[in-house]
């Protein structure tokens, strides 16, 4: 696989001049985003910067006020079936009585499956997906009793069970410890050999280590398909100089010439709580 996002690759997500928000208050302004097949895009941004809003728009859960959004060349409502959505772990109700297998099988739902039972083909796809994330042995376990990392892998399996073209992940490593996050990112890296990935995260070290292209989002999106976060991008996004430390990252986080204001001082993760 090539690490670049050459212009020859098919465009799987196309966002043009997007404005979106709640009750007339724009959260996203004039966002353009083009994701090509097999890319691994990481977007970071402050809380309230519109990360979740962008996800909601891409999933058709929120209607944009302006602009055009296409998934696989289709309007969102039609194209979203190609997206495997992996939500944040924190939204889950731990006492919900459900087993891992039944969670993963939800990836097989669709409009056409209403009034039809799950087929052997569905079960095959679910089993493949669970094996792929190394969670097949957990299939009879109550979902609420899993660890954070295990639940995250089951969510990824649920997304994979739908045989998606794109994986869309919302903060995949919130509330899991760093060692577990690493295995999750390694899993994503492997999946990226055949699936396009768009990930939203606050975890800058991960963004810099595993993704192919990066961007920042804070009302506006600063994304030009670059493979490094530039201090200029971060400054635009966070509206203040940002501190970054790449923890043994294979990619560099900083461009060659460091911005004078962007001297690494603290971990960027907790440097900007507001």
């Amino acid at each position: 696989m090539d690490g670049t996002h050459g212009s020859g690759a098919r465009e799987v997500i196309a966002v043009q001049n997007l404005w979106a928000g709640y009750d007339g208050e724009p959260v996203l302004e004039d966002v353009d985003l083009s994701v090509r097949e097999r890319d691994f895009v990481g977007l970071i941004g402050p809380n309230g910067g519109g990360k979740t809003t962008l996800i909601n728009v891409l999933l058709g859960l929120l209607q944009p006020t302006r602009g055009r959004v296409e998934i696989m060349g289709l309007p969102v409502e039609k194209g979203r079936r190609f997206i495997g959505y992996v939500p944040q772990l924190v939204d889950f109700d731990r006492v919900f009585p459900i087993r891992v297998w039944d969670v993963a099988r939800m990836g097989r739902l669709s409009r056409h499956h209403v009034l039809r039972r799950y087929s052997a083909e569905d079960d095959g796809a679910v089993a493949r997906a669970l094996r792929e994330v190394d969670a097949f042995d957990l299939r009879d376990r109550p979902f609420g009793e899993l660890s954070g990392g295990q639940r995250q892998r089951v969510y990824i399996a649920r997304a994979l069970a739908s045989e998606p073209e794109i994986l869309l992940l919302d903060e995949p490593t919130t509330s899991v410890d760093p060692r577990v996050s690493q295995t999750i990112y390694q899993l994503l890296e492997r999946l990226n050999e055949r699936i396009t990935i768009l990930m939203i995260s606050h975890d800058m070290s991960a963004i810099s280590s595993y993704v192919k292209t990066v961007g920042c989002i804070n009302r506006r999106l600063f994304y030009h398909g670059e493979d490094q976060l530039t201090p200029e991008m971060l400054e635009l996004a966070y509206q203040c100089p940002i501190d970054l430390i790449a923890h043994g990252a294979p990619h560099r986080v900083f461009a060659e010439h460091d911005h004078p204001d962007a001297e690494p001082k603290r971990d960027g993760r907790d440097g900007h709580d507001r």
């Binding site: 999933l59 859960l61 079936r81 939204d91 939800m106 739908s162």
Partner: peptide, 10 residues
């Protein structure tokens, strides 16, 4: 269980 996911699955 997860209404947003069900919506995305149409």
């Amino acid at each position: 269980f997860d209404e947003a996911f069900a919506t995305v699955r149409n």
